[in-house]
Design a protein around this nucleic acid. Structure first.
Lengths: 195, 195
DNA sequence: CGCTTCGCGTAGACACTGTCTACCTCTCTG
DNA sequence: CAGAGAGGTAGACAGTGTCTACGCGAAGCG
């Protein structure tokens, strides 16, 4: 019996889901297929997750945690300059969205998640708080409140991620590089870089 | 026999789908339920749409057309001022996303659409062209090319729509009004209003 | 006119899904 | 040692998308 088998089934199911998600995408995440991957019968998950959506929510939660970790690490690289930290945050967000396509899609598919349940919509709050902090450090005295600027900037990042994955932005702007868009978004919301 | 029945089944299926979509949301759009709504057997749609996804794609196409019409109408209200036209466009986009929640969701659910098929991803191009035109009229001489500014602005609008529908922005910014975010986005990408 | 073809809808099968329920088998405890 | 309960198994059920065989009615044609 390997230690994989001795591990709690709950964690094993989540891991199997993450693997399946990265390998085959969201539509492959059926409850029965996840159970098969974990080597148990299709009824087993029910002992740990009352419903299919609650299992998918657990998988998404893992994704939110990974994203938060990654962005925090990316920011740590530029300890001094808040402007550079914001750039790193934006790049990290887009990197994650493009590198973990399935996971990113799941994370914002509120029809597949228990979004009403406490603790899921709130998962992105710490990340947003970091964003607000950085924004207010870059713009100490703006007429627009920092949370609004941060919200607009986050929306911009998220929209770029979404439309880029969809392929529309490449088609519309005629380029294959996200970088100009990312730079344009940051310059727009924070003012040009070297002001 | 009403003229509803004499109409081609193809159009009737799309209409039934649109109705079902606005009434019950995306997850209710099963092929069999649409067929039931249209008063035919579950095999009938196959004569007009080879697969479930192609039927959903036709429904989404209707949505893209409606959105383009609405935005064009909204813009026509302010014939003179391109800045006001952009504001109208943005507001129209958000209005549509919030008023036709199911349709807007379907339109950007590329897992439910034949997004590789010609003619669907391109549906948003005319709208984007209008956006580029308006942007280049507001900013005649910017160092950032108009398509990039337009792409960034579109991303921002789309991101606001997405995150607002999800509820994250209300939670994060602590407000129940999208207007400040819309205004912040336009000011950011085009410069303050009365410059 | 009679016959054939064919567009278009029907009906049933198949594999697959999520959920529910009855069972079975361990392990821990009094 | 007996019993209880946690946790996995297996089967049923309604629903899904797709495929196939069938039927019907209208149009075309000698």
């Amino acid at each position: 019996m390997s230690d994989q088998d001795t591990a709690g089934l709950r964690a094993r199911l989540v891991q199997a889901g993450v693997d399946l998600l990265t390998e085959e995408g969201v539509q492959a995440l059926s409850l029965r297929e996840i159970a098969r991957r974990a080597g148990v019968s299709h009824g087993a998950p029910r002992r740990h997750f009352p419903t299919h959506l609650s299992l998918l929510s657990a998988i998404a939660r893992q994704g939110f945690a990974d994203l938060a970790d990654k962005v925090a690490a990316d920011i740590d690289g530029h300890r001094t300059d808040p402007r550079a930290q914001l750039m790193a945050l934006g790049r990290g967000y887009l990197d994650f969205a493009l590198a973990h396509r399935g996971m990113f899609e799941l994370m914002f598919r509120h029809d597949l998640l228990e979004s009403n349940q406490l603790g899921l919509r709130e998962t992105s709050l710490p990340l947003f708080q970091i964003l607000v902090d950085l924004v207010s450090r870059v713009q100490p005295r703006s007429d627009v409140p920092p949370p609004v600027v941060a919200g607009a900037l986050w929306s911009n990042l998220h929209g770029i991620a979404q439309l880029w994955r969809w392929g529309s932005l490449q088609l519309a702007t005629g380029t294959d590089d996200v970088e100009p868009l990312l730079r344009a978004a940051l310059d727009a919301h924070l003012g040009p870089a070297g002001r």
